[in-house]
């Protein structure tokens, strides 16, 4: 059939950004959005905290809200000593949040929709938390894989299970974020493409009928906004949980 086609995955192709200079060093549109996210978060904090008012105004309130949110998350999940990891958790949270939110804009690239990006973030968290575990407990950290209070003859069975459960962390962490962002954007594209198909096939009648997918897309936009925030939150709180396990070992 001629006419419009639904190209749901085309939106995730990498191109080069920043003109000929970007082409020379393979600076992709994904990198562009990462840079934009980082710049926005730094600017937000620089501008929001410029005044340092006792009674914050909107921008400062926003910045303080974000800070306190992550601060509470660290203290509640890891404990008082979790504040050591606050800068890391906050960086991860804000980077992913900005990536998800920027991706919601039309024509903007969603860098969290690439497994390469989410997997490297997750692997970093995984390696870091394992390192923290060995740093705080030394070789005793291997006891983490031996569940307490089970008879000895079960251990050959339980230890591999615990190890696989531990190794599955980066996979679940990265796939969750990647799948959620990709699925949302694909659904958007499919419904939008369906509107074009309807109009092309049934003319004026189809144009009226395409109100239905339009409504669905509006609903999806709200859902995507929720998912964007939630996935950043889930990634950050799981980072906290893994660090908690590394520090407290249980």
């Amino acid at each position: 059939m001629a006419g419009p086609k639904i190209d749901a995955l085309g939106q995730f192709t990498l191109t080069t950004g920043l003109g000929p200079l970007g082409r020379a060093v393979d600076f992709t549109n994904s990198n562009e959005m990462m840079l934009a996210g980082a710049v926005i978060i730094v600017l937000l904090f620089a501008l929001g905290l410029r005044r340092r008012a006792l009674v914050p105004r909107r921008l400062q309130a926003l910045v303080e809200l974000m800070y306190e949110f992550v601060h509470n998350m660290c203290v509640d999940t890891i404990g008082e000593e979790g504040l050591r990891f606050f800068p890391l958790v906050f960086t991860i949270f804000s980077f992913i949040l900005l990536g998800n939110l920027l991706g919601l804009f039309p024509y903007f690239f969603t860098f969290t929709s690439h497994i390469a990006v989410t997997l490297s973030l997750a692997l970093f968290v995984f390696v870091f938390s394992t390192g923290v575990g060995f740093y705080t407990h030394g070789l005793k950290f291997f006891k983490f894989f031996v569940p307490a209070g089970v008879p000895g003859w079960l251990l050959p069975l339980l230890v591999p299970i615990e190890i696989i459960s531990y190794l599955s962390r980066p996979v679940s962490l990265s796939v969750r974020l990647f799948a959620n962002m990709t699925a949302g954007h694909v659904m958007w594209e499919v419904f939008a493409g369906f509107m074009l198909l309807l109009t092309a096939s049934f003319g004026i009648l189809g144009a009226f009928a395409s109100i239905v997918p339009l409504g669905l897309n509006i609903g999806l936009a709200a859902l995507e906004l929720l998912v964007a925030g939630l996935q950043a939150y889930v990634f950050a709180i799981l980072t906290c949980l893994y660090l908690h396990d590394a520090v407290h070992m249980h």
């Binding site: 696989i164 459960s165 190794l167 599955s168 962390r169 996979v171 679940s172 796939v175 969750r176 799948a179 959620n180 939630l230 996935q231 889930v234 799981l238």
Partner: peptide, 14 residues
């Protein structure tokens, strides 16, 4: 959000 992926990931790794 977590539970579904959590189960599949362990399977994949194994």
């Amino acid at each position: 959000m977590r539970l579904g992926v959590e189960m599949v990931a362990a399977m994949v790794i194994a």
